[in-house]
Amino acid sequence: MVRLITHNLLACHAKGCNANNFPLQFKDVEIEIREAEFNPDFLRGFLPKIEWKALVDSARQIGDTSLPAEQPEMVDDDFLKSLHHVLLELHIEEGSMTCPNCSHVYPISNGIPNMLLAEHEIA
């Protein structure tokens, strides 16, 4: 399941690719929306772990513009609901993710990202 919460934690790990290797860029994605249980405490706790700009840019790449460019200082319920939807309810089922630095392509198939590297690409 590639949801944006997981995508926000994945970086390119190919040999020698240590800078500008995040976030991976989505391409040719197919998206499904599935409802998830709203848990405001989880979202509040997770917020500091998120790279905000990467999340907003990636959401826009796949057509969701509901998040503000800057992380709001006031975390209210409306904001948490938008965040919940973007992080947990958008499932990228097919497509690929490309490293912005080395252009390595990681495919996504049946909702599962393939982050394996060939032996010569392993750091």
Partner: peptide
């Protein structure tokens, strides 16, 4: 699930 060895693609973040 993520097809990966150990924690490799997650280690950075």
């Amino acid at each position: 699930p993520i097809i990966a060895s150990l924690a490799s693609p997650l280690q950075h973040r």
